[in-house]
Simulated assay, not measured.
Amino acid sequence: MSLLRYVRRLNALQGLQHCRREVSSAPAKSATLKYDQDPQPLFTDSETQRLLQSMTQLQLDKVFRKRTVKDNRSETKFMTNEQLETEFLQIIEKAKHLLKMPPIVKIKQDTERIIAKDPALKDFATTKYVFTDITFGLPHSERKVVVRETDGTLAYASLDTTKRMNQLYFPLEGRKSYTPRMFAYEELLHKCLEEHKYEFVLDRLTVQYEPYETEFHNLSARVFEHLNESKQFDLLRSTRHFGPMAFFYAWHRCIDDLLYDMIRRDYLHNAVELIALTYKIHKIPVEYTETLAKLEALHPTPDESALSELRGFLRRPEEKQGIEQEIHTAIGKTEQDFAADDISLKFIEEYIASEHSLKKVQLELAVQTLKEINLEKLQLFQGLKKAHGVQAS
Rank of each mutant, 00 (worst) to 15 (best):
F233E: 02
R204H: 13
L188G: 05
C254A: 07
R237W: 00
H196I: 04
L227C: 04
P244K: 10
D234Y: 09
E199S: 15
I255Y: 01
V207R: 06
F248M: 07
Y249L: 04
E213P: 12
E229R: 13
D203Y: 00
F200N: 10
H190K: 12
Y249H: 03
L227H: 07
R204L: 13
Y185S: 14
L236E: 09
Y185A: 09
S220P: 07
E229H: 04
A250H: 12
A250E: 14
P244F: 03
H226K: 06
Q232I: 11
G243L: 08
N228T: 06
L189W: 00
S230A: 08
F242L: 12
Y185P: 02
P211Y: 01
S238V: 07
L219A: 01
T206K: 03
E195C: 15
E199G: 05
V207H: 01
Q208E: 02
Y260E: 05
M182C: 03
H190W: 11
H217Q: 07
E195L: 15
N218K: 05
A221T: 11
E210R: 15
L259D: 03
A221G: 01
F183G: 04
L188S: 10
A184K: 06
E187I: 12
P244C: 08
D234V: 08
R204D: 04
C192M: 08
N228R: 11
R237G: 01
L205M: 09
F248L: 07
H217G: 00
E199N: 00
E213V: 08
E210A: 11
V207L: 15
N218H: 14
L202M: 11
H226N: 02
S238M: 13
L235H: 11
L205R: 00
C254Y: 05
M182P: 02
H226Y: 13
F248N: 04
D203S: 01
R237Q: 10
F247L: 01
F242S: 07
S230L: 03
H190S: 09
K231C: 06
L235K: 09
T206D: 13
H196R: 14
L236Y: 02
K231N: 13
F224H: 12
R237M: 10
L219D: 02
E229Q: 13
E194Q: 15
E199W: 12
K197A: 13
R204C: 02
L205E: 00
E187P: 10
C192I: 04
E229F: 11
L236P: 13
T206H: 11
L193T: 09
V201H: 00
Q232F: 10
C192T: 10
C254K: 13
D234Q: 12
G243S: 08
L235Y: 09
Y249C: 15
F247C: 14
D203M: 05
D256P: 13
F183V: 06
E215G: 12
H217V: 08
F242N: 15
E215F: 01
L189C: 14
E225W: 08
D256N: 09
T214M: 06
C254F: 06
E229C: 11
W251N: 08
H217I: 06
L236D: 05
Y198A: 04
L236V: 02
L258W: 00
Y260P: 04
F242C: 05
V223C: 07
H252V: 07
T206Y: 06
L205P: 04
E210W: 02
W251C: 03
L236S: 09
E225C: 08
R240Q: 05
K191P: 00
F242H: 07
L227D: 01
S230W: 14
